[in-house]
């Protein structure tokens, strides 16, 4: 069972604001989904290696050579608040 406090803790980790109604709803829904997921614990997994990726990608490193990247203006063109050649955000201290 995921209670209100846990939902709020996880939401804080995920940088996600939730209304009171959403906290209620997520508490119920996440509990039922996690209950379902927990049937995994029926399996004996002690000698099993984890799989992170099905494809072994060896030698995926590129040569360490300079190359062109996105033009500065292009990279800033979609920003909600570009300023002084950068991305402006509210102060962390306010």
């Amino acid at each position: 069972m995921i209670d209100r406090t846990q939902v709020l803790h996880v939401a804080r980790l995920a940088r996600l604001q939730l209304t009171d109604d959403e906290v209620e709803r997520m508490s119920t829904e996440l509990s039922s989904i996690l209950d379902h997921i927990e049937t995994i614990s029926e399996l004996d997994l002690s000698d099993v290696a984890p799989t992170a990726h099905v494809v072994a990608s060896e030698g995926a490193l590129r040569a360490d050579a300079p190359r062109a990247s996105l033009d500065h203006d292009v990279a800033l063109a979609q920003a909600p608040d570009p300023a002084d050649d950068g991305f402006r955000v509210p102060s962390p201290q306010a």
Partner: peptide
């Protein structure tokens, strides 16, 4: 928002849908 963290959390609240929020929470948990 007036501060950075509230800007993040409010942006994600206001502009993401319920299923996306649900999965972000499951995944983060």
């Amino acid at each position: 928002a007036d501060d950075l963290i509230t800007m993040y959390t409010k942006t994600r609240h206001d502009y993401m849908g319920t299923e996306v929020k649900r999965r972000i929470l499951i995944g983060t948990y």
